[in-house]
């Protein structure tokens, strides 16, 4: 997937653990792990909103579009 998630970096910047974020946004640790490890296929606006609210950041701080990855996928 050419969209990558940098949740771990934002969490580190805010000194927050995944467990704490999970409690604050009401999403299970398992689901947040899926998001963190880049295995997620989609993210709900409600989840994104909750994460941005709790981490006081923008969606662009968490999600990145990787051009090179897209080229690799296209080549495959």
């Amino acid at each position: 997937m050419s969209i990558s998630v940098k949740l771990d970096r934002v969490l580190l910047d805010h000194g927050m653990s995944l467990t704490e974020l999970s409690e604050r946004v009401g999403v299970t640790i398992a689901n947040l792990s899926i998001l963190k490890t880049g295995k997620a296929k989609a993210i709900r606006f409600s989840t994104l909103e909750a994460i941005c609210r709790e981490l006081n950041c923008q969606p662009g701080d968490i999600l990145f579009f990787d051009d090179e990855e897209l080229a690799v996928e296209a080549a495959e």
């Binding site: 997620a40 989609a42 989840t47």
Partner: peptide
């Protein structure tokens, strides 16, 4: 179902 399971 797989897509739903991997939707956060």
């Amino acid at each position: 179902k797989e897509e739903q399971d991997l939707t956060v």
